[in-house]
């Protein structure tokens, strides 16, 4: 598979191929077409970052602009999903969950359980997350642990173009509600992606690097940082195993535990704030289920307990850096 495309193109291709395959797949969101009701062109934007560009030309009214009304259209997507559609609703920035969270966590997530197994809600909510664009406190958060907390939701964090396409196709075909989070810094990342449609299953971690000395569990963009550090340290003889869970719910705890049993050392790298985070969650996993294998304290590398700052100097200090990851590894290796 020699063809290389970007993370952003991989997501566009997944949407395109699934809309082609299945009439019930529809896409909605603010400016996902761009131009509805105006005096210029349709598909003027194709999403705020052009991610859905071109889908309108191919799929017409099955991709639809919405007013700026997140509760309204996220709820509409959820309602349509209970009727047998497979809507993909774009929330633009995950920070906007605050204005529509009820439809996600009280409605979509709970229908199946509350209704005694009688409902299926195959909705996908796509949104970008993460710091690095000087987008400040309300457009930069890494809020995946909040969704991971909610039973009934699945949460997906692709870290490569290959995973982005395969996980999104899986999300669309999945019968449960899926929160699909795209790191905005990764949109331009290139990688090999098959042209044909394919799925990457949920709950199966990708072991990005193999090693016997230290286990690094990293999420989303942090997988790239962790891999870079692992490659650097490998030259010095410190062999890190880098695990990308790919989905935080379901979580491939088995692969993480197996690795900890082998290495006895764990570093968790999580771009979100530290309290009640994936970092604390994985650390809990290690101490409650693999304590006897640990040879050193568990280390976490996270953002601080602050909002995401605007100034570049502060934002750089906020995001877990390769240097901090390296220091954490060295402190226990």
């Amino acid at each position: 598979m020699a063809r290389k495309i970007t993370y952003q193109q991989a997501i566009n291709e997944a949407l395109d191929q699934e809309m082609t395959r299945d009439e019930s797949v529809i896409v909605m969101g603010e400016d996902v077409v761009g131009g509805s009701g105006g005096h210029g062109e349709m598909d003027a934007w194709g999403g705020v970052l052009g991610l859905t560009k071109g889908l309108y030309a191919k799929h017409g009214n099955r991709i639809m602009d919405t007013p700026i009304t997140e509760s309204g259209y996220i709820g509409a997507a959820v309602g349509a999903a209970t009727c047998g559609m497979r809507p993909v609703a774009e929330l633009m920035f995950i920070d906007f969950m605050g204005v529509c969270l009820d439809q996600i966590y009280n409605q979509a997530a709970k229908f199946r359980y509350m209704f005694g197994g009688k409902a299926k809600t195959p909705v996908v909510i796509r949104a970008m997350y993460g710091a690095g664009f000087s987008a400040a406190a309300q457009h930069s958060q890494a809020l995946y642990s909040i969704f991971t907390h909610i039973p009934g939701l699945k949460v997906v964090l692709p870290s490569s173009p290959y995973d982005a396409k395969g996980l999104l196709i899986q999300a669309i075909r999945d019968d449960d509600p899926v929160i699909f989070l795209e790191h905005k810094v990764l949109y331009t990342l290139e990688g090999e992606v098959p042209e044909e449609p394919y799925t990457v299953p949920f709950g199966e971690a990708n072991v990005v690097r193999e090693g016997d000395d230290v286990t690094i569990v990293a999420f989303g963009r942090m997988v790239l940082h962790a891999t870079g550090v692992a490659d650097k340290l490998a030259k010095e003889g410190i062999k890190c195993e880098v695990i990308d869970p790919r989905t935080t719910s379901p979580l491939d705890d088995e692969s993480i535990l197996e690795s900890i049993e082998n290495t006895g050392r764990l570093v968790v790298v999580d771009e979100s704030n530290p309290r009640c985070s994936m970092a604390s969650d994985i650390a809990e996993l290690a101490v409650t289920r693999a304590f006897e294998h640990l040879k050193a304290p568990v280390k976490t590398v996270t953002a601080p307990h602050t909002p995401v700052p605007f100034a570049k100097s502060l934002e750089d200090a906020y995001i877990p850096s390769p240097e901090k990851i390296e220091a954490a590894i060295r402190s226990i290796a």
Partner: peptide, 16 residues
Amino acid sequence: NRQLINNMLQYKRLDG
């Protein structure tokens, strides 16, 4: 090795 397995899985996960 890991890569051989990944390559095989990537093939097996293609539609069809």
